[in-house]
Write a protein that binds this DNA or RNA. Structure first.
Length: 589
RNA sequence: CGGGACGUAGCUCAGCCUGGCUAGAGCGCCGGCUUUGGGAGCCGGAAGUCGCAGGUUCGAAUCCUGUCGUCCCGACCA
């Protein structure tokens, strides 16, 4: 393609509305343009990159035996009502009514396709002989995000590869799941992403039923915890800590228990400021309704409660913060003054609570707190649990080494669904014993746009983007430096034609622009391989070849140029492929 | 949905506080000349409903009210 014949609106200045690197660079490099908050046009270069990522996803899915199909974005609302997800999604679900003659049709734009695919399978799979089956599609999804942000990272319309597996039993599901997990590793590795598979909340099935694929990035919306020594990694919701349960003592002496006035101070910050103590000295007393019973959960002042951990620790079904009326009834005080001393309800505590030598807590009375609180003397605990969000420095649950907390971009998610949808939508099969059983499902998503955005976010320097060969809009940029110089134009034109003929994915910058402009654009967009034809080099019969990441170019005789370019591309492809295989193998391990 | 910021030319922004003349600059764009290895120089030119609506005023980009839009923080995100 000739630059002069395509459409690449690059920008020298940073658009005021873009804050994070991927957003700024994708706009400046002419990859995307915003249409409104949360929706973007993919310009020719951005679309090419997106389609290359899509092709990698498709190729690997098919290699793993998944079958591609294509479902409609427009779906009957009734399917979402049958699974209860109309309410679950709430405002996120885009739905509206259409007039058809004298009928009104209530439809939704698919935020995902569990309903449609399960309905399809319910109609056409009835025997164990037809299983297992994994289908996938690459399709536009719609979600009315409450707050679209971060450029193309969080949009209300996006390209998603979603796959669904159908199995006879849990063992087969494990196999399907593992297959998808492994494929995801290959996909992200081939796309040149530095990804981390992390454990995620598993939902109804439990165990290792869900993993997210994260790309660590400072501007990522999600947070993950990973061990600095071993491969353990989990999202923040899920991350366990390897803290040991402390010994529970019943001391008698120690500091004096005192009641102090703290008028109007209900937050950790206010109280610690007023009393001159540190948040880590304080005990946060959260009144939860756990299976509808009030329970006080004790968390250190500087920590954050993790409701999933509370649910698991207590073997509960539902965990929700109590309403103000309940809190007042249980503690005898308004919200903000709860404390464990003299509290009537059940009390559970995080491991860190007994380690506070001299704690500050609410006094269960308005406008008052207690200081000098000693666990085991002023109130009793029978056990402690891991009930809080992990933080940086916590010991790894596998090996005990310190963990780190980093932000990440979620690019993929694999999930064991079980029978939620098959039961709701009647997807049953007869097994070999003539038993009618619900089909066991798994679902597997990849945000294709996010592959591009995550690359832009993590692979750039001060001059612009740096694409891997595999998803670059074009692999090679050929620059004719001075298009008023007949010899340059002649040589560059010949080179372009020959590269094209040899199947090279090349963009030819044939613009009548100054060299500086062309070099800056080349770096900004970040084409992997740059080939320069200039008058200077031509005098010595040479052109120049340079990788985006190289400091200086290599001179190549004009007559060897095409072969050299092909050779370099081949070599790089081999290297990338090997590296991807190694990375994928590491992750699978 | 709570909190904050912003809206003036394609882009980045000044002007607004303290109302007043043809509404400005840089970049980009168009034409001309010069220039050609890292966003060139000179000359000339086109381009703006000052987000929109209403109000105050002799007079509004500027003050007031409303509204729409965008961004950021938080809540939310099967």
């Amino acid at each position: 393609m000739r630059w002069s014949k395509t459409f690449i609106p690059t920008m020298k200045e940073v658009p005021a509305d873009a804050e994070i690197p991927s957003h700024q660079l994708m706009l400046r490099a002419g990859l995307v343009r915003q249409v409104m908050a949360g929706s973007y046009t993919y310009l020719p270069l951005g679309w090419r990159a997106l389609r290359k990522a899509e092709a990698i996803v498709r190729e690997e899915m098919e290699r793993a035996g998944a079958i591609e199909l294509f479902m409609p974005a427009l779906q009957p609302i009734e399917l979402f009502e049958r699974t209860g997800r109309k309410d679950d999604f709430g405002n996120v679900l885009v739905h509206f009514t259409l007039k058809r003659g004298d009928k009104t049709v209530h439809v939704a734009l698919g935020p995902t396709h569990e309903e449609v695919v399960t309905d399809l399978i319910a109609h056409h799979i009835s025997s164990y002989r037809q299983l297992p089956l994994t289908v996938f599609q690459i399709q536009t999804k719609f979600r009315n995000e409450e707050r679209p942000r971060f450029g193309v990272l969080r949009t209300s319309e996006f390209l998603m590869k979603d796959a669904y597996s159908f199995d006879r039993n849990l063992e087969d599901l494990d196999r399907s799941y593992q297959l998808m997990y492994d494929v995801y590793c290959r996909i992200f590795a081939r796309c040149g992403l530095k990804y981390v598979p992390v454990e995620a909340e598993s939902g109804p099935i439990g165990g290792d039923a869900s993993h997210e694929f994260m790309v660590p990035a400072a501007n990522g919306e999600d947070r993950l915890v990973r061990c600095t020594a071993c491969p353990y990694a989990a999202n923040l919701e899920r991350a366990a800590t390897g803290r040991a349960a402390p010994e529970l003592l019943t001391p008698s002496g120690g500091p004096e228990l005192k009641r102090v006035d703290t008028p109007g101070s209900t937050t950790i910050e206010q109280v610690s400021q007023l009393l001159g103590c540190r948040p880590e000295q304080m005990i946060k007393t959260l009144i939860y309704l756990i299976d509808d019973e009030p329970v006080a959960v004790l968390i250190r002042g500087d920590h954050e409660a993790n409701e999933a951990k509370i649910r698991r620790a207590l073997g509960a079904k539902t965990v929700e913060l109590a309403d103000p009326a309940t809190i007042e009834r249980v503690t005898g005080a308004p919200v903000g003054f709860a404390g464990p001393v003299g509290l009537a309800c059940r009390i559970v505590a995080d491991h860190d609570i007994p380690r506070i030598p001299e704690a500050v807590t609410g006094a269960n009375e308005a406008d008052a707190h207690l200081t000098g609180v000693v666990v085991g003397r002023d109130f009793q605990l029978d056990a402690t649990y891991d009930l809080r969000m992990a933080t940086a420095g916590d010991p790894c649950p596998r090996c005990g080494e310190p963990m780190e907390l980093v932000h990440g971009i979620e690019v993929g998610h694999v999930f064991k669904l079980g029978t939620k949808y098959s039961e709701a939508l009647g997807a049953y099969f007869s097994d070999e014993h003539e038993q009618r059983r619900p089909i066991i499902m798994g679902c597997y998503g990849i945000g294709v746009n996010r592959i591009i955005a995550a690359l832009a976010e993590t692979s750039h320097d001060e001059n612009g983007l740096i694409w891997p060969l595999s998803v670059a809009p074009y692999e090679v940029l050929l620059i004719g430096l001075n298009m008023n110089d007949g010899s340059v134009v002649g040589a560059a034109d010949r080179l372009y034609e020959e590269l094209k003929q040899r199947g090279v994915d090349v963009l030819y910058d044939d613009r009548d622009a100054r060299p500086g402009v062309k070099f800056k654009d080349a770096d900004l967009i970040g084409f992997p391989l740059r080939v320069v034809v200039g008058a200077k080099g031509l005098r010595d019969g040479a052109i120049e070849v340079k990788w985006r990441t190289d400091a200086s170019p290599e001179k190549v005789p004009v007559e060897e140029a095409v072969d050299r370019v092909l050779e370099m591309l081949q070599q790089r492809r081999r290297d990338d492929e090997q590296q991807a295989a190694r990375q994928a193998a590491d992750a699978v391990r």
